[in-house]
């Protein structure tokens, strides 16, 4: 029993808690990608850099608040700066839409053209973020760091392994649940939300019903600003902020959205967790867990690690390829790519 609990604590520490946190971040990111795909009908390559932009604005305001001596006590100051980050990002996205996307929408450009256009936008955002905040790593987490201290846990339970739970991990999961619940309430219960779903379902009929496409597009970009900024800030608090890492997040986020089925919000959430758990489980060395769980003679001598952590993006990539080959509409009845 003692061994089983020790193994469980190790598993929680290195697999379940990190994967759940990462899954929440991916789910929020994938929701944004899926919304853009459903409403504007293209895969938005600038999504990762939009996350970076929103996080950058939040970090700048966090620093400002810190210099003023404002804080949230045990919670990170970034949560206070996040609404400002969302507003600035929303304005930025609406400006981009006005300047770039609307032109192509008026021309009824093919989705593949819009994808390339979004890549252009990605490069601009990419440069802008690096120009303003630099290419280096930024840590902006403050407040209480841990909720469960591993040493205190060991003392309290008498186990050999200490359970560690950081504040940012709890904040990530709680915030993600709140944001997702609010998003679903909006999409399913409000007039504007329903008109968005109608527009995504059947654009021509939505126009015949008098739904204003420009209004739907505006609401979509605002929702994207909320989702990207929240996802980016949570990721940055949990790990750290670096523009290149955010650009790289594009792959797992797209994998999540495609696995779940593009255009399907529920699928984006399921996909996010599927990708996160796969990535963490495949790159984790299970040696320590098995040492506790297997009887004496059977304990492995190797690391029991399927792939090195350097290859974690290969997991997303493999999932993406497998789903596209065998089930292009994703696991949750989405649109095919």
């Amino acid at each position: 029993m003692h061994d089983f609990l020790n193994g469980l604590v190790v598993l929680l520490n290195y697999v379940i808690i990190p994967a759940t946190t990462y899954g929440s971040q991916l789910a929020l990111g994938a929701l944004g990608v899926t919304l853009v795909y459903g409403i504007l009908r293209f895969s938005n390559f600038a999504h990762g850099d939009t996350m970076a932009f929103g996080t950058m604005v939040t970090i700048l305001f966090t620093w400002l608040f810190q210099s003023w001596g404002i804080s949230l006590g045990p919670l990170p100051t970034a949560l206070l700066a996040m609404p400002i980050g969302i507003v600035v990002t929303a304005l930025f996205l609406l400006g981009t839409d006005r300047l770039v996307y609307r032109f192509y929408r008026k021309q009824k450009a093919a989705p593949v053209i819009l994808v390339i256009v979004s890549m252009g936008v990605m490069f601009i955002m990419n440069g802008l973020v690096r120009f303003i905040i630099g290419t280096g790593e930024q840590n902006f987490d403050d407040g209480t760091r841990v909720i469960i201290n591993p040493f205190a846990f060991k003392d309290a339970t008498g186990l050999d392994q200490g359970l560690a739970l950081r504040t940012t991990q709890v904040i990530t999961v709680v915030t993600a649940v709140v944001v997702v619940a609010a998003l679903f309430w909006f999409l399913n219960r409000t007039r504007s939300g329903k008109s968005m779903r109608a527009f995504s379902d059947n654009e021509d009929l939505a126009l015949l019903s008098g739904i204003n496409p420009e209004r739907v597009v505006t609401i979509t970009w605002i929702l994207v600003a909320i989702l990207t900024t929240v996802a980016g800030v949570l990721y940055g608090l949990d790990k750290s902020f670096k523009p290149f890492t955010y650009f790289q997040l594009l792959l797992p986020i797209f994998a999540s959205a495609v696995v779940g089925g593009l255009g399907n919000p529920l699928g984006a959430i399921g996909g996010g967790f599927l990708v996160a758990y796969s990535e963490v489980a495949v790159t984790y060395a299970f040696k320590l867990v098995l040492k506790y769980w297997l009887p004496a003679g059977l304990q492995p001598s190797g690391l029991v690690q399927l792939m090195g952590t350097d290859y974690k993006y290969a997991v997303s990539f493999a999932i993406l390829i497998i789903v596209l080959l065998f089930k292009p509409t994703g696991l949750f009845k989405g649109k095919s790519v």
């Binding site: 007039r191 329903k194 008109s195 779903r197 109608a198 379902d201 059947n202 009929l205 939505a206 019903s209 008098g210 739904i211």
Partner: peptide, 15 residues
């Protein structure tokens, strides 16, 4: 609107 309920279809008609 195939993905929406019958009632939501009617609601959208009255948008």
């Amino acid at each position: 609107f195939t993905s929406m309920t019958v009632e939501e279809n009617l609601e959208m008609g009255a948008f």
